[in-house]
């Protein structure tokens, strides 16, 4: 390619630019066709009346009617709130567990490389297979978890995924376990970049283990913490597959019906495509606002 460009007597600077564009083209095309255009269409659709199969022949703009209806729809509002609840548990749990795991993996111990590989297994496993395994593990009557609890004398055994109160937190925690490896590896690489001299000088100053974590490690990896929080929040709002797999589509009742699931149901079960699009646009706005707040707030605690 570069020889062809040289033959055309194009300057080196432009040759590099052309090569760059060529490398970008596959991504840009796929992004345009499979992401940008559908997102744009969904945005347009949210202002239209495409809420039944026969509406396709008489499509028209109806302004904000779909958006106004969302705010009157208790099922949709409850689903948004459940997503926030899910997100709160997921992001908090993810942050602490992945950081803790990264600190452990950053130390020297036997089979470190094997264990580092093993923690990545849930992340690359099929989500439906994971769901099936966890459903067996948490089976209320004879599942291993409740069997162990009953051996230790527990009488009111939790119903886990079959409990209207526990299903959402349980799914959230399982999701942490599934995705944690990715965040752990990001933290691990960040931890390995903290200069050793800082630890040595803090030791000379008499700082203990926790002091070194709070005054050296955390400030040094704060950009990574920020990245993990932003990414985790976005992942937590797009939690469709794991909830569907573990809870028969948001059950029991609607106790784990998060907004991603609600959008899917509205669109593909009830054929309310515009209404579902309006809910998706609102979800996008919610995520955008949360992310903007984080960007603004990061100046106070992230050290670059």
């Amino acid at each position: 390619m570069s020889r062809m460009l040289s033959d055309l007597k194009i300057s080196l600077k432009h040759q590099e630019a052309i090569t760059g564009y060529i490398f970008m083209i596959p991504f840009v095309l796929v992004f345009l066709v499979f992401q940008f255009i559908p997102i744009f269409m969904s945005f347009i659709l949210s202002f239209m009346n495409f809420n039944s199969l026969n509406a396709v022949e008489k499509l028209r703009f109806i302004g904000l009617a779909n958006f106004i209806r969302v705010f009157k729809d208790t099922t949709a509002i409850d689903s948004y709130l459940r997503s926030f609840q899910f997100s709160l548990i997921f992001v908090t749990g993810m942050l602490f567990s992945s950081l803790f795991m990264a600190i452990l993996l950053n130390r020297k111990f036997y089979f470190r490389r094997t264990i580092r590989t093993m923690i990545y297994l849930p992340y690359v496993s099929n989500i439906i297979a994971i769901s099936m395994v966890w459903r067996i593990i948490l089976e209320p009557k004879k599942g291993p978890v409740n069997t162990i609890l009953s051996i230790f004398g527990s009488e009111n055994l939790p119903l886990w995924l079959n409990s209207t109160k526990l299903s959402l937190p349980t799914v959230s925690i399982i999701n942490i376990w599934v995705i944690m490896a990715f965040q752990t590896i990001i933290f691990l690489s960040s931890l390995q970049n903290v200069p050793n001299e800082l630890y040595e000088s803090s030791k000379i100053d008499g700082t203990g283990l926790f002091g070194r974590i709070f005054y050296v490690t955390l400030p040094m990896i704060s950009p990574t913490i920020f990245l993990v929080i932003v990414v985790s929040i976005i992942i937590s709002f797009k939690n469709y597959a794991i909830v569907l797999g573990l809870t028969n589509g948001g059950g029991p009742g609607t106790s784990s019906r998060v907004i991603a699931l609600n959008i899917y149901e509205e669109a593909f079960t009830f054929n309310k495509y515009s209404y579902a699009s309006a809910q998706a646009v609102l979800l996008f706005i919610v995520i955008l606002i949360v992310t903007i707040i984080q960007w603004k707030g990061q100046k106070k605690w992230v050290h670059y």
């Binding site: 119903l159 079959n162 409990s163 209207t164 059950g251 029991p252 009742g253 609607t254 149901e265 079960t269 009830f270 054929n271």
Partner: peptide
């Protein structure tokens, strides 16, 4: 009708699990 079926199952389930 699709919502009808869905709601019966959701609320019925809440009753059946004792919620």
């Amino acid at each position: 009708a699709a919502q009808y079926s869905s709601v019966i199952k959701q609320e019925g389930e809440r009753y059946l699990v004792g919620e």
